[in-house]
Design a protein around this nucleic acid. Sequence first.
DNA 1: TATGAATGAGGTTTCATTCAT
DNA 2: CATGAATGAAACCTCATTCAT
Lengths: 195, 195, 195, 195
Amino acid sequence: MAVRDTGAEQLIKDTAKQIFFAEGKRNATTQDIADAAGVTRTLVNYYFRSKDILFKQVFDEAMLDMRNKFDAVLAADLPFRKKLEGFIDMFYAEVTAFPYKESFMITEINSHDFDIDKKEISPALRIFIKDIQLEMEKGTIKKMRPANFMLNLFSLLAYPLITRPLFKKLFELSDIEFERLLHDRKKMILEMLLC
Amino acid sequence: MAVRDTGAEQLIKDTAKQIFFAEGKRNATTQDIADAAGVTRTLVNYYFRSKDILFKQVFDEAMLDMRNKFDAVLAADLPFRKKLEGFIDMFYAEVTAFPYKESFMITEINSHDFDIDKKEISPALRIFIKDIQLEMEKGTIKKMRPANFMLNLFSLLAYPLITRPLFKKLFELSDIEFERLLHDRKKMILEMLLC
Amino acid sequence: MAVRDTGAEQLIKDTAKQIFFAEGKRNATTQDIADAAGVTRTLVNYYFRSKDILFKQVFDEAMLDMRNKFDAVLAADLPFRKKLEGFIDMFYAEVTAFPYKESFMITEINSHDFDIDKKEISPALRIFIKDIQLEMEKGTIKKMRPANFMLNLFSLLAYPLITRPLFKKLFELSDIEFERLLHDRKKMILEMLLC
Amino acid sequence: MAVRDTGAEQLIKDTAKQIFFAEGKRNATTQDIADAAGVTRTLVNYYFRSKDILFKQVFDEAMLDMRNKFDAVLAADLPFRKKLEGFIDMFYAEVTAFPYKESFMITEINSHDFDIDKKEISPALRIFIKDIQLEMEKGTIKKMRPANFMLNLFSLLAYPLITRPLFKKLFELSDIEFERLLHDRKKMILEMLLC
DNA sequence: TATGAATGAGGTTTCATTCAT
DNA sequence: CATGAATGAAACCTCATTCAT
């Protein structure tokens, strides 16, 4: 009697995640995913009924995953500056593991049927927004809507990563040079946000 | 003697541009484009041989178009601050006309066979880099690699636009509230970059 | 428990063989073949991925098939003359069943990417070449390269069959008259080769 | 005022002949032919209305051409053996110039709507048949139907040429070796036919 | 749980042909 | 005599999905 493996479902999702986010193969077919996972194409369908469902599940999991990581950092019991530093480090680590995830999400976010099912603002985010307002009162950061502070943070972090190929060409940079550039940014972003 | 019509080719490209960049229909088929342009599908093929070629041509034209607009602003004979303001205005105008163009380009840029055929850094960009270095010396902007200054500029401008749906959800903002937020950013971006 | 049908793949190949070789419909489409086999066109594609692959498989099978029949006759333990007679009979039988096979193969052979994957001369052919050399030494056949003897054999057998329509016209022969002509050839060919 | 060229029609036919018979590109499109002839595709259509008509005209011309060459040799005032030699030489010369012509004709001949419009047996052929019968009476060639003598002649000449790629593989022959083989055949064919 | 067989829908491309100048 | 533009028909191919074990 065979041992129930049962890991197939998660294996397929992980493989899809890898293909989409790490390898950047946006148009991978179910066949491609099945092949990479070492299962038959129909098994993919057995578990997920349709490609769209697999798609959505992988996407949602990735979103949730990222949100959990965000929350962990944002709700941590640390001084504001440390939180920011932790956030930046976490973000860069994510991008190193899944270089295409940002770009992929951008696409999804802009697709016509984008709809994440969330009820309310995450508690961690609520805490962080409080932090931001406090810092503004203390004068360590400029006065602005908290949403704009968040937008600035994300912008300065994420945008260079998703347009990396373009800017490499534009400024004639090697991979190493671009890495150096990114490295410089960490301190710089802190300064821009906190000055 | 009738004038040769011949506008069909450009018409098809313009229609494709509209569909891709203004309506965000990334997966539009040749049929969709033909229908929207009021021509038969095979005519599309007559001019462009294949969908990929149409795709590439439209993309390249859009890139060139944008670069020309950049160059016009960056090389203008204006004080640095005015240039920045002009750039920001131009960028927002572009995005208003073609809301999905950024997102579309992100995707292409990250696709595996991305390769723009450029020989050297654009003269206008070279001028602007000079401007940046001059401003640094004057102390009106912080010292950093010029490339990082450009990255900051683009990041703060573009990222909120391409992640708009997500942040609207995240902060529970209406369209009007988000517009207000964007409006605030113009002044704020100038301050962040120039402080 | 029902028996797996699974005969579909072979059925499609056999049908294609029939259409190409027996009916001479060189330009049959996948649809034609699917219709004749009583399956849907996409099933043809399911098994063979592309028309070319089906094409190649059918062709290769036909080649192998014929080679096996050749080998059986050429390697048989019979006196040389009997072998020749057997070969001629076999050849005519083949042609009766698949009148267009020869012509089809001529075309393929002359196509630009013709390449059968054979490693070495078939053992049966090697035996037959030995036979030929022996007969030459015995003086029952004229001295010549064995390859030329083979060429003569095939020429005299096959050529009239593949140019049948032309010669029928040229000599104003009815089908029956042409059959008579072919019938006479059997003895004549033996005489020409063995004299 | 431009010089009337007018050679375009013949140029197209000659180009088609070249492509079909010399290069063996059976499936060349009108575009291919137009390109090779240095004219636009629509010009091909202007002259020939349809691809089939061009096809047929080229084919018919090639047939007529060959028949004229046959006739010239067969009706010449020469001894029988000389005629045969002349015929063989002429045939080989033709094949050298247009290696794929034979194979192409085989295909056409076997196509379902093959129909050359001839009224009667060519006078030259009639003369040659007389010759054959005379030689039979003289005992220089074996007794058989004249049609079979002709079939033998053509078979031994043409078949090795149209199956050349196959036999090269089968007997592991280089191009040079195959040429040598063909060279030997000239004398051998005469012997086989005349013994 | 897992799979091979089969299908349908939709997309792309090729090509000969016709139109209008 | 010559051509660029446009069209129609048909072929081909890919893919997600369903069926029947």
